[in-house]
Design a protein around this nucleic acid. Sequence first.
DNA 1: TCTGTTATATAACAAATGTTATTTTATCAG
DNA 2: CTGATAAAATAACATTTGTTATATAACAGA
Lengths: 191, 191
Amino acid sequence: MPPIRKYTKEDIVEATYQLIKEEGISSVNARKVAGKLGCSVQPIFHNFTTMEELLSEVHRKIYAKYQEYMMRGGNDPKSYKQMGLSYIEFAADYPEFFKILFMKETSLDAEKFVMADAIGDHVIKVGQKLSGLSYEEQKKFHVKVWIFTHGIACLVATKTIQFSKTEIEELLTNTVLEMLMGYIKNQEEDK
Amino acid sequence: MPPIRKYTKEDIVEATYQLIKEEGISSVNARKVAGKLGCSVQPIFHNFTTMEELLSEVHRKIYAKYQEYMMRGGNDPKSYKQMGLSYIEFAADYPEFFKILFMKETSLDAEKFVMADAIGDHVIKVGQKLSGLSYEEQKKFHVKVWIFTHGIACLVATKTIQFSKTEIEELLTNTVLEMLMGYIKNQEEDK
DNA sequence: TCTGTTATATAACAAATGTTATTTTATCAG
DNA sequence: CTGATAAAATAACATTTGTTATATAACAGA
């Protein structure tokens, strides 16, 4: 009988995940992952055929962490505002993950972005409760809100701005409210 | 007397600049630059002590291109709106340059960002003409406008959204106007 | 035309990194 | 307690890339 597997797939994924969190994706390599686990590179290539395969599993884990952030406050997201704040908070807590998920070509398509992906069109409906807009109007309005939210998140992830949670909450809340008020006023004037 | 220098510093900088434009910073290396020039790597290391030194000069050239975009419409920027559009257009025309300048930690500090850097506080004054706000109010308002602009630009640079110039102009114009209307209305209600 | 200077080519070296061959070692069924 | 099995260590190989040593060649002044 062979010895027990000392380093499992999950151990290796976890070590890589931590390494990316601490130093970013560009400084990951087989030897560093092994170093973090205190082993040679063999367990890695025993469990994964290539580094690419390992990284793809880590990517999945990173995405799960993002979803966890977006889903907090319950399976059924209560608050439109909270989703925006969670997006930014994820960028603040895991800047390297945010960069991988949302600041690269390969990682995100437009549909996913607008829809806040896994959450589907629920976010539109939740937004409607705040805005009172029709579904189609809210969809258009949501794009603007999300672009603003994404703008803050990118600046946070790259550490260009270093606002506190309170400052960010105020900035986002005020701006979205102002955007909405302006949007409604604009609609009225068009009549 | 030595032979004439066939590959000048500027030739090498230009080749590297083109390479980054086409394939991004991560695929640049000495042999590729040499290949683009049709020479060996020697001219590169004859003109620059290290690749880092070369890349730092290219960075300067990239920044100059950005400034060229922001400055168009005259040395004295006429239009607040045009600056936002130029920022986004730069991201659309030179996504790899935009990423280097504005989507990395190392490249940008908060003060530079808010001020649209080289343009100084002029942008605030130009913005005031549009908004009619006081200098301090406009400064705060400008941050919001610029975050939104930056959000679009990041999405354009990563090809997450692929709006036409017209769509972007409409999106930016409408949103900024709505933000302003909401901002003013909000101020009034505070009284 | 010859020669010194130096730009460029060629080739090599070193470090980093993915990957693999070979050896060592831990486990447990017998 | 022992041997078959496979996990892990060690070491090596291949490729990529920055950098440098050496050889070649082009130019201008003598």
